[in-house]
Nucleic acid binder design. Structure first.
Lengths: 208, 208, 208, 208
DNA sequence: AATGAATGAGACTTCATTCAT
DNA sequence: GATGAATGAAGTCTCATTCAT
C-alpha cells in the first residue's frame, strides 16, 4: 500500500531525526527502507536532495496551514492561539519531520540552505505579524515582539521532543495548554473571552 | 596565554556548534586548532571523549550555578527569575557550548549519553522544583508543571541561537525580559517585588 | 530514416571518441541516443560488444578499401599514394570511427583485442607490402621499411585529430598533400607521374 | 632508494599508459604501488591531480629540452633534426610518460586541460617555428607548414608505441633514421651536409 | 611535544547489467 | 520494442585512529 518512495522518505525521517543527517549512512538508510543502497538512488537524488525534499514537504505544509490561519481572522489573540494550536499539534503528530526541519538546517550546503530558510522565514513572518498586530491593537504587552516570537516558537517546537501520542494527554488538551501559556506570556490576562472559549464570541472587545 | 589544550577545546566548540559532531572531521578540528591531526591526540582521547568533556564542562557549570540559586531563597518567583536570568545569560555568553550541549546529545553512544543526560536531568530538576514550589505556594498557576518546565527551558535556551553580544540589547536587559516572560507564562501577574515595574500596569485587575 | 540501431552506433561513436570507452557510461550512451539504458540492451550485447562492433565495421571498411588498392596496380609509388590518399580521406571523413579504433584498443579484453588487432595487422600488412615492393623496385629509399610503415601510418592517422571538413582545405587537396609528404619521406623525388608537379623543381639532381 | 612518492608516480605511469586513466582504478593503483588505497592519498591529491602532475613533469622536460635546441642555432635543418632526435629519443626512453601525455588529455577536466594544453602548445610552437624558418630560408619545401608540423609530431611520437630498448636498434640510430625521414618529408634532398654528418660542419651553407 | 606515514573501515555515488512487465 | 526497478560490484575519496620517530 505504501509505495517504495514513501518507504524511503519514512526511513529517512526516522533516521535523520534519531541520529542526524551526518550521523546517518546511506547503507543504514537503505537497510531501514528494505532496499539495497544502489536501489535507493532510484528514489532520490543525493542524500542532501532527500533531506531537502523532506524539509520542504514539512515546511510547505506548515506554511500552508499557517497562512490559512493568518487569513482567517483579524483578531490577534485568536490568530495567535490558533497558530500555537496548529504548530503544537503538528509537532506532536509529526515529531520526526519537525525535528529534522529544526535540527538539520546546518547540514545543508549554502544554496540549499537558502531555499529552506526562505520557507522557514515565511512561516515565522506569520507569527511576527500576529504579535505585531496584537501589540498594535493593545492585546499583547511585550517589550520586544521579536524576542517574544522567538521564545514562543522555541517553546512550541519543543513539543516534538517529548510528546507521546500514547500518553494521557490528548492533542486538544495540549493545544489548549500551549495556547494559554502563549497568551499569558504575551501579557494577555485570563479572560473567558480570550481563553479557549473566546472563539465563541468573536465580537468581544480586547481586554487590558 | 591560552594553552594548546584550551585551543583544542575552543576549536572543537566552534566546529561542533557550527557543523555538528558528525559533520566535523578530525582533520578540520586539527587545522582549526593549528595542529596536525596526530598531535590532536595528545590533548584528547577519542573524538567522542572530546565531545563529552565539552558537554560535561558546560553542564557542570550550569548545574553549579543552578544549585547556588536553588539554595539562595525559598521564594519561588525570585528563584525562578534568577534561574531564568542565569540560564539566559550563560546561553547568551556561551552560545557555542550551549548549542553543542543541546544539539549533540544524539551523537553520544548509550553509555556516554547516560552520563551526560544524568547531569542535564539534575539541572532540569532544579527548574522542576521551583515550579512545583511556586505552584504549591500559589504563586504560579499552570495546568502542568512539567509542560511549563519544558516550555520554559526550550524558550530560554533558544537565546543561544540568536543573541548578538554586539547588538543593542545588553545582557541585563535580556535577563529581565526573559524573566518577565517566564513569570507571566507561569501566571504571575505584575508584582513590583518580582517583576520590573515598568512593564506592568499596577492597577490591572489581575486574575487567578 | 536512421534506425534506432544506427542512432545507438552514432551516439557511441561520438562519446567513445570524445571521452573514451571507460570514460563513457551506459547511461550517458542511452541519453545521447534518446533511449533508456535498459532499452539500449535491445540493440547491443555488452558495452564491449558495442565497441568491438564499431571497431570491426571501421576496420573492415579500411581493409576492403586497402585491398582493392593493393590489387589495382604493381607500381609501388602509385599504390602507396593511393593508400595514403584513401587512408587520409577516410580519417578526415570519419574522424570519430578512426579515433575510436586508434585509441581504444587498450580497453578491449585479451580475446576481443586479438580479433581487432588481427584486422588491423591485415591492414598494416598492405602498407608493409607496398613499401617492401617499392624498396625492392628501387623507387623507395629507406633504412628500415617497418619504421617507415609506422611513421607513415601514425602521420596519416593524425588527420582525424585536426581536419575540419568546414575549413578551407578540400579532401582532394588533403590527400594530395599527404601523398606528396609520404613519397618524399620514402625518398621518392618529384616525378610528374606520381607527385603533383607544382611542388617539385624538376631539375633537382635527385638522390636515390 | 626510491621514495614512496616516486613509486606512486611510477605505478601511475605504468597503469595509465597501459589501461588509460579511466581504465585504472584507485585500488589497482594502490596495489601496484604497494600501498593501501588510503595511504595513496598521502602522496597525491585527487587521481586527476596525479595525472596532471605526471603530464606536467613530462611536458616541462620536453619544453625545456626543446627550448634549449631552439636557442642553439639559426640553421633550420639542423634545428629540426635536433628536435626530431630529441623528441624521438625521449619518446623511446620514456614511452609511458609520453603515451600518457599524448593519449589522456581528454580525461582532464576543462580547467586542467587548459593548463596542460598550454604547455603542449608551447612545445609545438617550437616545431612550428623551425618549419616556418626553414620554409622562409628556402631549406624546406612544403605546401602547408602546419600540416607538416602535425605530420612530423604524430610520426615521431609513434615511437613510444613500439620502440624496444632491448631490441637491436640503438637510440642514436633511431634518432638518425627519424631525422632523415623528417628532412626528406620537408623536401630537403639528401646532401652530406644536411644528413647526419652535417653537424660536423656547422658552417655549411644551406642546400637546395 | 609533535608529526608524517599508515590503514581498515566506511563514506557517498555510479557502474554495467538483468528482468518482469 | 521499451522501460522502471533492482542490484552486486566497484568507483573515488575521507574517516578516526595508531605508531614509530
Amino acid at each position: 500500500m505504501t509505495s517504495t518512495g514513501e518507504r524511503v522518505h519514512a526511513a529517512a525521517l526516522e533516521l535523520f531525526a534519531e541520529r542526524g543527517f551526518h550521523g546517518t549512512g546511506i547503507r543504514q538508510l537503505a537497510e531501514h527502507a528494505g532496499l539495497s543502497s544502489a536501489t535507493l538512488y532510484h528514489y532520490m537524488g543525493t542524500k542532501e536532495d532527500l533531506l531537502v525534499t523532506l524539509m520542504r514537504t514539512s515546511l510547505e505544509r506548515l506554511v500552508r496551514a499557517g497562512e490559512e490561519i493568518a487569513g482567517s481572522t483579524d483578531d490577534a489573540p485568536t490568530r495567535l492561539a490558533d497558530l500555537v494550536g496548529m504548530h503544537v499539534t503538528s509537532h506532536a503528530q509529526r515529531p520526526l519531520e519537525t525535528r529534522v526541519v529544526d535540527d538539520e538546517v546546518h547540514a545543508l550546503s549554502p544554496s540549499r540552505r537558502q531555499e529552506v530558510v526562505a520557507l522557514r522565514d515565511r512561516y515565522e513572518a506569520l507569527w511576527q505579524q500576529v504579535i505585531d498586530d496584537g501589540v498594535g491593537s493593545g492585546h499583547f504587552a511585550v517589550t520586544s515582539a521579536s524576542i517574544a516570537r522567538r521564545a514562543l516558537l522555541e517553546m512550541c517546537s519543543g513539543v516534538a521532543r517529548w510528546y507521546d501520542p500514547a500518553g494521557r494527554m490528548g492533542l486538544g488538551e495540549l493545544a489548549e495548554e500551549y495556547s494559554a501559556l502563549a497568551l499569558r506570556l504575551l501579557g494577555v490576562v485570563g479572560d473567558p473571552a480570550t481563553t479557549p472559549a473566546r472563539r465563541v464570541a468573536p465580537d468581544t472587545p480586547g481586554p487590558v
